[in-house]
Design a protein around this nucleic acid. Structure first.
Lengths: 114, 114
DNA sequence: CGGTTATGTAACAAATGCGTTAAATATGAA
DNA sequence: TTCATATTTAACGCATTTGTTACATAACCG
């Protein structure tokens, strides 16, 4: 398995259950039990999803009596936003194709061999 | 395995080899052979990475004689940018902690039981 | 202390992921 | 047709992921 931060983050986000957990946590911290309730899977399964999220740095855990409240930590998402941003020009449709086309034209102009 | 678009995209991005392929493709289309060269893994392995990227809609393939040039398709990244953007306020540091804190204070104020 | 509640860990099974090498396929060229 | 080139598919091995159930921990509460 990969251990670099971006890979851990992307992989963690690749599961809809984990994304739903993050969404829930964006409204405030929650116990493992509360996080389990909306899903059809067992608490141990959720506990392991949380471990994946924790390893990616996306959640943090504290302790409060027999509860271990889970909090969102969105910091790694900044890295994701940053990574994806480099591709923005590529998905912004027709204008970019046009840009590419113009760039290609110009290249053709200045380099007669093409 | 998950089949929803976001999960496919995030999972595909969870591998550094695949991200490197996308980066290479952001400079223009390439053949499978060209994409294989920078890596220490076999062409079949790259071919399968490409299949993952294709399933996520991140690359498109055409045919040109015995070559099957691969092109970047960044459209799915718009969805990723969109998803992650909803969390921007959460990673933008101290101000948010302050917001949370103030919200908590207010909640405490208006609800004497807390 | 002894029971209840909340959560984590162990052990297991099934599925997936990712690499390899060898063989198949498709196109172009002699 | 026959060979060479580019790529995919098949068959395999091995590690990881994800779920389950059963058991272990930890903290509170009477």
């Amino acid at each position: 398995m990969q251990t670099d931060s971006l890979s851990l983050t992307f992989s963690a986000l690749g599961d809809p259950t984990r994304r739903a957990i993050l969404q829930r946590l964006s409204e405030g911290e929650a116990s493992v039990g509360e996080l389990t309730e909306p899903f059809d899977i067992s608490m141990p399964a959720i506990s392991r999803h949380l471990k994946v999220l924790e390893r990616a740095g996306l959640v943090m855990r504290t302790r409060n009596a027999q509860w271990r409240p889970v909090q969102l930590n969105a910091a790694p998402l900044a890295e994701v936003a940053n990574w994806v941003e480099r591709y923005r020009q590529h998905w912004q449709g027709a204008f970019d194709r046009m840009d590419d086309y113009l760039a290609e034209l110009q290249k053709g102009d200045s380099d007669a061999k093409n």
